[in-house]
Write a protein that binds this DNA or RNA. Structure first.
Length: 278
DNA sequence: AGGATAGCCTGCGGGC
DNA sequence: TGCCCGCAGGCTATCC
């Protein structure tokens, strides 16, 4: 369940080894996790940036883009069980490791893309314009930069529940089930509130709380619920900060009433029916 | 057309 | 002990 904080941690963890380095050999263990988009030909290691020098690793929402100095781009989405990490070379690969790269910077390590549930994947583009056209233009502003005015506008006239809007990557990018519930609780706003009825000042409150929670979670190394692991395999610590996610039936920190659980937009949702107003 | 819903996929934990 | 079932989740396709 990598959401924005977990993906940002991955970015920060691998960037030092990748930026300025060259991908040497790329091995594709499972081709159907890769898609060639806006680039010529059928899938080959060259599409996955083999022999390319890496210029930058960018993030928008939950997605990463590894940008080569020659302009080509590899977009990485971790889905819910994906990981992108540096692993010792020579150690047997973990199951469901789909692609590996050797690196000029750290010859004793491999970069490994692993994704047991395969909700994630890799997308190959000829340039950043193609990435944006095909994928990133469909995303709303990154959750760390989104404004109350944007969400207010994006939800005008909408009958959707506010939680469904938060989970919609086209409205705001990077929020998943965990941080949606946490931000709504912090802003004392019910997940059932109709997005179109939320006042600008309330959006302001929500945006501020969301940003604070995301930043705190980045600092804590992300949330480890079951799958996510940090770049060196360690568990994150941000789950200790959770006030509602995974705490259905427990006492609300604010008022002591039992936290309720139910489905909102097909997602398990936990909230306090007293503290969070519709 | 917007919004709700089903399905993809694997691992794990609870219950019997 | 071992098996089976349900659940977890992001996103896309499909339906209403």
């Amino acid at each position: 369940m990598p959401e924005l904080p977990e993906v940002e941690n991955v970015r920060r963890a691998i960037a030092p080894a990748l930026v300025g380095a060259t991908f040497r050999a790329c091995t594709i263990h499972r081709a159907d996790v890769c898609e060639v988009r806006g680039a010529e030909g059928s899938l080959s290691p060259r599409h996955l940036l083999e022999r390319a020098e890496i210029g930058a690793i960018n993030r928008r929402g939950k997605q990463l883009a590894i940008v080569a100095r020659d302009g080509r781009v590899l977009c990485v989405h971790l889905g819910m069980s994906g990981s992108l990490e540096l692993v010792p070379r020579g150690r047997p690969l973990a199951p469901h490791t789909h692609v590996t790269w050797t690196l000029s910077s750290t010859p004793d390590q491999l970069l490994a893309f692993r994704d047991p549930r395969r909700f994630g994947g890799l997308w190959c583009f000829a340039d950043q314009a193609a990435l944006h056209e095909d994928r990133w233009n469909n995303l709303g502003p990154d959750a760390l930069e989104v404004t109350a005015v944007h969400l207010h506008d994006a939800s005008k006239g909408s009958a959707r529940k506010v939680k469904a809007l938060l989970l919609d990557q086209g409205a705001v990018a990077g929020v998943g089930n965990i941080y949606a519930d946490e931000a709504l609780f912090a802003a004392r706003l019910s997940p059932h509130a109709r997005a179109g009825k939320v006042k600008l000042s309330t959006w302001g409150e929500l945006v501020e709380k969301l940003r604070g929670i995301l930043l705190a979670s980045i600092n804590e190394g992300g949330s480890t619920i079951r799958d996510y692991r940090g770049p060196t395999g360690e568990a994150g610590r941000a789950q200790r900060l959770h006030k509602v996610y995974g705490r259905a039936g427990e006492a609300c920190e604010g008022c002591g009433s039992r936290l309720r659980s139910g489905a909102v937009g097909q997602r398990t949702t936990v909230w306090c029916h007293k503290c969070q107003k519709v």
